[in-house]
Amino acid sequence: MAKKTKIRAKEKDGIVIAKVLMSHPMETGLRKDKKTGKKIPAHFIQEVIAKAGDKTVLEAFWAGGVSKNPYMSFKYKGAKGEMLTISWIDNQGGSASKSAKVK
């Protein structure tokens, strides 16, 4: 499965509103497989880093309580044309990184 991340970042009056959508199952480890009755192993993004250029603007810690295909929005001081990079790692060592230009 492709690990897709979508980023929208728009600047207005010096403030960038960033919206991020990540493709991830976000399994808590508590759910059971309906067919086998076995527990589905925990599999969730546990850390997300947002960088404007090379400066970290936000660091998020998550557990399985964040919904499947997670969404996150935040605001920071920034300018049009800057790069916003979102990187995440999950509890099984999976990771992804994606950049987008602030519009």
Binding site: K4, K6, R8, K19, V20, L21, S23, N69, S73
Partner: peptide, 11 residues
């Protein structure tokens, strides 16, 4: 506002 299916549209 940013729906999970947007990733599916891209795919």
């Amino acid at each position: 506002e940013f729906a999970p299916y947007e990733i599916d549209i891209e795919k």
